[in-house]
């Protein structure tokens, strides 16, 4: 996974609460057995009309948000299913970070496994970002994971909380399976003391 330290990018606003994973990547696209190629289906039912034309009223289809790499969204973003296809689609489309007042647990976890930073800011700060993004002039933000800050060049500055372990993994782009494998002796010891009736299947 690509390490994440500082990211400067264009911002797209998705001013809706409870954006669920069925919206992020509808189920008809979950049948692929690869990790890539989901970006074109991101927010499919919102991006395209029933006859497959881009829906001009949807924010990601507006010219000023083309090439956005930072998504600002309402609370409880990513609720619903555990499908990792949701962060895969966001990443494949180009998003490296999301900013919202809160996330569903599994979704936030899945993001971090894929090098996407789920930044939590207060509702008021997110409202302010919606205001600043809506001027249609290619609004940009800098997300600094090392300093845990979000800033623009017009005076907006906010800090966010992320635990040290996840921050470290994201900054180094670590394979955490390899981390767990370092504890092989402890795992083997645990298995040795596990009740044998647990293995009856």
């Amino acid at each position: 996974m690509t390490p994440f330290r500082i990211h400067i990018g264009r911002v797209a606003p998705l001013d809706r609460p409870n954006v669920d994973t069925d919206q992020i990547i509808p189920k008809q696209f979950l049948k692929r057995i690869e990790r890539t190629g989901f970006g074109e289906f991101l927010f499919y039912d919102w991006r395209y009309t029933a006859n497959g034309e881009p829906d001009r009223s949807f924010v990601l289809n507006a010219n000023e948000y083309r090439g956005a790499t930072i998504l600002v969204a309402g609370k409880n973003f990513g609720c619903g299913s555990s499908r990792e296809h949701a962060p895969w689609a966001l990443l494949d489309y180009g998003f490296r970070t999301i900013i919202a007042p809160s996330y569903a647990d599994i979704f936030a976890n899945n993001c971090m496994k894929n090098g996407i930073v789920p930044v939590v800011l207060s509702e008021a700060e997110v409202e302010e970002l919606f205001r600043r993004t809506s001027d249609g002039r290619g609004y940009q933000l800098t997300v600094d994971l090392e300093r845990r800050t979000v800033e623009d060049d017009q005076g907006f500055s906010a800090s966010f909380v992320i635990d040290d372990f996840h921050r470290h993994c994201l900054m180094e782009g670590l394979d955490d399976i390899a981390l767990t494998e370092q504890y092989e002796p402890q795992i083997a010891a645990y298995e040795a003391r596990r009740a044998t009736w647990r293995d009856s299947h």
């Binding site: 990790r35 299913s81 555990s82 499908r83 990792e84 962060p87 599994i106 976890n109 899945n110 496994k113 894929n114 955490d176 399976i177 767990t180 494998e181 795992i187 298995e191």
Partner: peptide
């Protein structure tokens, strides 16, 4: 519930 990266993690390490 877990994501696919975690499925891989559990398959590999339990």
């Amino acid at each position: 519930g877990i994501g696919t990266s975690e499925v891989e993690h559990v398959l590999a390490t339990q």
